[in-house]
Simulated assay, not measured.
Amino acid sequence: MSIVDVDRAAFELRHGREVEIDGQIIIHPEFLTEKIWQNLATQNLKLLVTPLRAKAIFNQEFTASVEIKLSDLSLQDVVLLVAGHSNANPKYLENATEQNTTALKLARIAELLPCAIILENSEDAYKISAADIMSYKEDENNSLFLAAETPLKLADAKKAYIKAFRPKSGNSEHLAIIIGDISENPLMRIHSSCYTGDLLGSLACDCGDQLRECIKLMDKQGGGIILYLLQEGRGIGLINKLRAYQLQKSGMDTVEANEFLGFDDEERGFESAANMLKILGITSVQIVTNNPKKAQDIENLGIKVTNRVPLLVSHEHNEQYLQVKSAKSGHIID
């Protein structure tokens, strides 16, 4: 099954092992040790990075993935290069091959930095096809099914019900939190998981505040649905989000930090949200969001949006964060 095969390939990559994609062999640099590096020393190694990561390294624009030659570099040089702090000046080549595109996509699926080291040979790499990697998200979203459901007592809602959805691969579980009673055209919010905001109450974003205020709004209006999607940090994963937070301490904003790491500003997809609504028999919604693009995205996926309901929670700590959302991501915060 292709979904399971890709999950296994991502597992191998996350555990420092080699993966072969249609003949191209990769390993992720995050897990390199001196011993592994010495064993690879006889090979002509290249570091594969996204155009945005290459821009951060070489301070120039790129339009395709970039292969950086690692000849004569030490492991420490490579570690610094991956982190964007190297003084080395290696040779590089833009190379937009299907294998490179899928290698970077697999790193994203594994929630690693979007980069990889290309090897010349391997004796025991896990083999996977580029086609399976490229269709992974679509296959995963299309295989969602209702796995569990139960009533749930919430502090801010008189009546709530939770439904858990899971793809056949067993990963990326998503929740539908149903507040009150659902109409034919209910209030609906797509809320991407935010460990720091939702659970810890971080003041750096508006996520946790929006989640709680949305529950209150839906309870007051009689009902609604919150689709809680497991896609942390705009889809880059928790560890990478924390790395982006650290970069923001040096003066970068949210978008700049994500792009410095090699990610696009927006790595999320909302296909799973649309599929969950369809499974629940909902074809029309009033979307609770400050982001008009999210409303358009969900309409493009076959769900009619009759109204956009704003939900702004601002304070002195997240003011700059909201301004960046407005200026660079199109959010309406007035």
Rank of each mutant, 00 (worst) to 15 (best):
I3E: 02
I3A: 05
D5C: 08
V6K: 04
R14G: 15
H15C: 09
D22Q: 05
I25C: 03
I26L: 12
I27F: 05
H28C: 04
H28Y: 11
P29V: 12
L32V: 01
T33K: 01
E34L: 12
I36E: 13
I36S: 14
Q38D: 14
N39K: 09
Q43L: 06
N44W: 08
K46Y: 01
K46I: 00
L48Q: 04
P51N: 08
K55P: 00
F58A: 05
F58E: 12
F62T: 12
F62A: 06
E67F: 09
K69E: 01
D72N: 14
V79H: 08
V79D: 12
L81N: 06
L81H: 03
A88G: 06
N89E: 13
N89R: 15
P90D: 01
K91R: 11
K91H: 06
T97P: 04
E98N: 13
N100D: 03
N100K: 02
T102K: 08
R108G: 07
C115Y: 03
E120Y: 01
N121I: 02
S129A: 01
A130I: 11
E138D: 11
D139A: 11
E140W: 04
E140T: 11
N141H: 04
S143V: 03
S143D: 03
L144V: 07
T150N: 10
T150Y: 14
L152F: 07
L152A: 02
L154I: 10
D156M: 05
K158W: 00
K163D: 07
A164M: 11
R166Q: 13
K168C: 07
G170M: 05
L175F: 12
L175K: 06
I177K: 07
I177S: 08
I177V: 13
L187Y: 13
I190R: 02
H191R: 01
S193G: 09
T196D: 10
T196V: 05
L199I: 15
L199D: 12
L199F: 07
L200R: 12
G201A: 09
S202R: 14
L203I: 00
A204K: 15
G208I: 12
G208N: 09
D209Y: 00
D209I: 00
R212H: 13
L217S: 13
D219K: 08
Q221F: 05
G222I: 06
G224T: 03
E232W: 08
E232A: 06
G233D: 10
R234Y: 06
I236Q: 10
I239S: 10
K241P: 00
A244W: 01
L247C: 07
Q248G: 10
K249L: 13
S250L: 13
M252H: 00
E259V: 07
E259M: 15
F260E: 12
L261Q: 03
L261V: 03
G262V: 03
F263C: 06
A274R: 09
L277G: 06
I282R: 01
N291E: 12
A295W: 03
I298E: 09
L301A: 06
K304D: 12
K304N: 13
T306G: 07
P310C: 13
L311Q: 05
H315L: 08
H315W: 01
H315S: 15
E319A: 15
L322Y: 09
Q323D: 15
I332W: 10
I333Q: 11
